[in-house]
Amino acid sequence: MMKKMKWMVSRVHTKSELIDGLIKQTELSEYYEEKTLIYHVSKHGGVTVLWSVMLFNVLKDYRDLLQAGKHYYIKCTTIENKNGEWCYAHQSEFAFPNYFDCPLEFLLLARYEMNHEWREKVRHYHTQQKKHNAVIH
């Protein structure tokens, strides 16, 4: 189930600079703040995936949409070099990321399950990896 992603172009020169900027980035508004709590980087051919557990802290109630308090979610950021420019696209767990190697502990940290089907695919991926590694060793 591939979802179309909106790609953003970065002004940095290296992938490391891009990752560093993405994990240090903090979003602020009068209603919320958002920041990275923990992250993991994985590779898929020419694509790099940055997995993050995000803290979404609602500072004050916003209409009937958000109640004040801390919420945690999983963000999947896909990073690619396109024509010499570093580009990235974000997907939350809700949007059914295209990859399933999200660290299992991230599922525990982001306790609010927004996409049961995707989480099951992540668990299945790790089960298959364990079986594969057991056969190799």
Rank of each mutant, 00 (worst) to 15 (best):
M1K: 06
K3N: 13
M5Y: 08
K6F: 15
K6P: 01
S10N: 11
S10A: 09
S10M: 08
V12I: 12
H13I: 08
K15A: 13
S16F: 11
E17Y: 07
L18G: 01
I19K: 14
D20C: 06
D20Y: 14
D20A: 13
L22D: 04
K24H: 12
Q25T: 06
Q25A: 08
L28E: 06
L28C: 08
L28R: 01
Y31I: 00
Y32R: 06
T36K: 04
T36I: 07
I38S: 10
I38H: 11
V41M: 15
S42G: 04
S42A: 11
K43E: 14
H44G: 06
G45Q: 10
G45R: 03
G46R: 10
V49H: 01
L50K: 05
S52T: 08
V53F: 14
N57T: 03
V58F: 14
V58L: 12
L59T: 01
K60M: 15
Y62N: 02
Y62R: 02
D64N: 13
D64E: 10
L65F: 05
L66A: 04
G69M: 08
K70H: 10
H71I: 05
Y73W: 01
Y73D: 03
E80D: 09
E80M: 14
K82R: 15
N83E: 15
E85P: 06
C87G: 03
C87Q: 12
Y88A: 03
Q91G: 00
Q91E: 15
S92E: 04
E93H: 11
N98Y: 02
Y99R: 04
D101H: 05
L104D: 04
L104G: 05
L104Y: 09
L108S: 10
L109V: 10
R111S: 14
E113S: 13
E117D: 14
W118K: 01
V122S: 00
R123K: 15
H126E: 02
H126Y: 13
T127F: 15
T127P: 01
Q128F: 12
Q128V: 08
Q129M: 08
K131T: 10
H132D: 09
N133G: 05
N133R: 13
I136Q: 01
I136W: 02
H137K: 13
